[in-house]
């Protein structure tokens, strides 16, 4: 049995597999169930300072090759979030990452203030959702200056709100010319870690019988197996520049071998979302077992020994 545990930004995860934001994360009991299924931790759906309406259906679809979604980040606001957190806490001690989102700049500040009061250990800042462009314009993760500004704002609101100990992870978009310069800018602004990557695109599906876009939002973020090719490359590039940076590697991971590959690229934690589409909610336990089996076969005793391993060879 390999030791799969990871200490990430001072928080211990029993294994590196975390539920990515936006999947199954609406209720406390739902997230606790993901832990029962074998995840090392969970990330909440993106929390807003006020109730936010998502897009009408269809909001997500996929087949054995790809997945696409434009849910539009619906959320009932902080009061419900606090209630769900309490239910989660009553069921498990496993770490919860608070993912927050804000629309315009001040919205990010407001939710950072609210979430600071919930005792977060790790806050993940979502500045990279590709599906609310009509409402709020281009994601902040596409701008060096805005990504830094929002990171500074959220950091200061967390500090002022009594969450100075909370670590801040910024979730980046692959839909930029150079993700490393964005990583540089948010780290300079106070980010403690990076989550890479959000979904790709956005993409589009057309129903040819009716000549209609299938997603109600027309466009949606692309995920699934092939995203791993990109997410591994981008995590690799970020890690190459920032040697010991804590990174949550997300995008196209659905097997133990995928997860090992992502960790070798430089990720300390692995986010999984679309994997639930491919392999069901039990995917976390399955992937953890596959990672363990691989470690046993390859003489790896501690999973943390493989983090960033490929960099020694490049």
């Amino acid at each position: 049995m390999a030791d799969l545990s990871v200490e990430f930004l001072g928080v211990k995860f029993e294994n590196p597999l975390v539920l990515a934001s936006g999947i199954l994360g609406i209720t406390g009991d739902g997230m606790a169930r993901v832990i029962e299924h074998g995840a090392g931790g969970v990330t909440t759906k993106s929390l807003w300072a006020k109730e936010h309406k998502g897009h009408p259906n269809p909001t997500m679809m996929g087949n054995e090759h790809w997945f696409i979604n434009a849910v539009g980040i619906p959320d009932a606001g902080p009061e419900k979030a606090a209630e769900e957190l309490a239910r989660y806490r009553a069921k498990t001690d496993a770490p919860m990452i608070f993912n927050i989102v804000g629309g315009m700049m001040e919205g990010f500040g407001e939710i950072a203030e609210k979430v600071a009061g919930m005792g977060p250990k790790i806050v993940e800042l979502n500045i990279s959702c590709p599906n609310v462009k009509d409402e709020f314009g281009k994601p902040m993760a596409c701008s060096i200056s805005k990504s830094a500004e929002v990171t500074r704002l959220v950091r200061s609101k967390l500090d002022e709100g009594g969450a100075a100990d909370a670590k801040l992870v910024v979730k980046l978009s692959p839909n930029v010319e150079n993700i490393v310069t964005i990583a540089d800018s948010v780290i300079e602004a106070g980010a403690d870690g990076i989550c890479a990557i959000n979904t790709l695109g956005p993409g589009m599906v057309i129903d040819i019988e009716t000549a209609q876009p299938v997603l109600h939002n027309k466009f949606g973020g692309i995920s699934g197996h092939m995203l791993k090719l990109l997410s591994v490359a981008l995590v690799y590039q970020i890690r190459a520049k920032h040697k010991d940076l804590p990174i949550i590697g997300t995008g196209g991971i659905s097997t133990g071998r995928d997860a090992i590959e992502m960790m070798m690229a430089g990720a300390s934690l692995i986010g999984m979302g679309t994997a639930v589409h491919f392999r069901g909610p039990e995917v976390f336990g399955k992937v953890a077992k596959e990672m363990n089996d691989w470690c046993d076969e390859n003489g790896v005793e501690k999973i943390t020994d493989i983090i960033g391993k490929v960099h020694a060879n490049t």
Partner: peptide, 19 residues
């Protein structure tokens, strides 16, 4: 329900936490 296949989390019930 939104997705129908256990991803979105909208139909998860309290108690079991299952969709």
């Amino acid at each position: 329900m939104k997705c129908g296949f256990g991803v979105c989390g909208n139909c998860v019930v309290d108690g079991t936490g299952d969709p």
